[in-house]
Write a protein that binds this DNA or RNA. Structure first.
Length: 285
DNA sequence: CGAGTTTGACCCGCGC
DNA sequence: GCGCGGGTCAAACTCG
């Protein structure tokens, strides 16, 4: 699907909520697709250094950087959760109901076994922690204006947690890619300062193609459409190869097919999608 | 019945 | 050492 089929409108064509911040990012219209998204605005892409967990390309224009909940952190160990599940889920769980049904001997045995398992797991984790320098997966935060929290992006996700965010009425949801051996995670949360903004943070690389890419897919369309814009953005910041790698790892674009237009094609107001997409591609009302 | 969600408990790092 | 907050686990639950 192309950008034209998807429809692109200028921001000023929309009035969403009470948001009043200035934005130079593309505004994508899904209204002529059959999906339920309606509209979605890509507000910014934030990349994080895998080593320091600090945002890269810090001069990127993001409306409200405080919306990106990743605090600037120094070298901090990154929890190594992938493939570190307890070996025996059943024995590691302590259920009061089941414990009551057991006699004392069985209870003690079960508890001992449970403790052993916990101890084992902990020791294994500890050993790994001390022996391995853990490295963070690259992370990218997408700020989008959307009516829905969990945006369809072409991959299947399983929610594994939800936490209340401090100083925010909106919870943060944790998702993991459902594909086996794929450890990509993402966090989704709404901005406290502007509830119409959804901040999606991706972490890791998909080890498989998108299961639904190729079919009519809203977010896939968005990313294929906005990849040009994003690529150009990073070209401006001399990080094109890094970002191409990153986006391709997320399944958003194919490095082979990426072409960078001439630098001169970019105006000083490079953030506008209008500047990177021929004007005839815009749907005018 | 399998896949996905909910949710309380737990772990861990960090700041004080 | 302690409390707080972020992140994850996993049993219970829901849904198709």
């Amino acid at each position: 699907m192309t950008m034209m089929m998807m429809g692109v409108k200028k921001k000023e064509d929309y009035a969403i909520g009470s948001s009043s911040f200035h934005c130079n990012y593309p505004f994508l219209d899904f209204s002529d697709d059959k999906g339920s998204l309606g509209f979605m605005e890509l507000l910014g892409v934030q990349e994080y250094s895998p080593l320091l967990d600090l945002p890269l390309g810090s001069n990127m224009e993001v409306p409200q950087t405080s919306d990106l909940k990743e605090p600037p952190q120094t070298k901090k160990d990154w929890p190594e959760v992938t493939n570190q599940q307890p070996a025996t889920p059943n024995s590691s769980s302590i259920s009061s109901a089941s414990s009551e049904a057991l006699n004392d001997e069985q209870k003690n045995r079960t508890v001992d076994q449970t403790h052993d398992e916990h101890k084992k797991t902990k020791e294994q984790l500890k050993a790994k922690k001390t022996n391995q320098k853990r490295q963070r997966e690259p992370r990218f935060a997408f700020m989008t204006k959307s009516e829905v929290d969990h945006l369809e992006d072409g991959y299947r996700w399983r929610k594994y947690g939800q936490k209340a965010v401090k100083n925010s009425p909106f919870p943060r949801s944790y998702y993991r890619c459902t594909s086996v051996s794929c450890n990509v995670k993402k966090r989704v949360e709404r901005s406290f300062s502007d509830p119409s903004i959804v901040v999606t943070t991706y972490e890791g690389q998909h080890t498989h193609p998108s299961p639904v890419m190729g079919r009519s897919n809203n977010f896939g369309s968005l990313m294929s459409g906005s990849e040009n814009y994003i690529s150009q953005y990073y070209q401006q910041h001399h990080q094109q190869q890094l970002h191409v790698d990153a986006l391709s790892s997320l399944g958003f674009l194919s490095p082979k097919n990426v072409t960078f237009p001439q630098q001169t094609a970019l105006s000083s107001d490079y953030g506008r999608l209008q500047d990177v997409v021929p004007s005839h591609m815009f749907k005018q009302d």
